[in-house]
């Protein structure tokens, strides 16, 4: 059974990958989809989302930063002094990211 110490580098690698994806890609997508499109400055072509390459890209864009969130949120809770619940917090944070990954894959592949 994998121990805590063996899993730590695994989660850290996903954190690093997710943080890099978020740093490179999220600001422009937030601007385009969250601000520019609702305000009518651009219109995003809905048919784009049907392409396999776009779906793979969206899968990476959405799933990896969830592990970045999980890792940071976990350690922020520790830093805020939530002691004695370290194991449940870790399981909950990474669990949400794993569930998010599965849901993302399911939504993208179903459509």
């Amino acid at each position: 059974m994998p121990t805590k110490r063996m899993m730590e580098p695994f989660w850290w690698a996903l954190f690093g990958a997710g943080g890099t994806v978020a740093a490179l890609l999220v600001p422009i997508h937030l601007f385009l989809q969250g601000i520019a499109a609702p305000l009518g400055w651009v219109s995003i072509n809905p048919t784009l989302f049907g392409h396999l390459l776009v779906k793979l890209y969206l899968f990476v864009l959405i799933s990896l930063p969830l592990y970045h969130w999980a890792h940071r949120f976990r350690y922020t809770l520790y830093d805020l002094g939530v002691k004695g619940m370290r194991q449940p917090i870790a399981v909950l944070c990474y669990g949400i990211a794993v569930v998010g990954t599965i849901v993302t894959a399911w939504i993208l592949w179903r459509g």
Partner: peptide, 28 residues
């Protein structure tokens, strides 16, 4: 703390984006 909090906003945005994609795949 703001830097740590940024990961929360990014995650919420991505969930909203995912919901948007799900709605898109449901129909125009």
């Amino acid at each position: 703390m703001l830097r740590e909090l940024s990961s929360v906003f990014i995650a919420i945005f991505l969930v909203v984006f995912l919901i948007q994609i799900a709605q898109l795949l449901r129909g125009p």
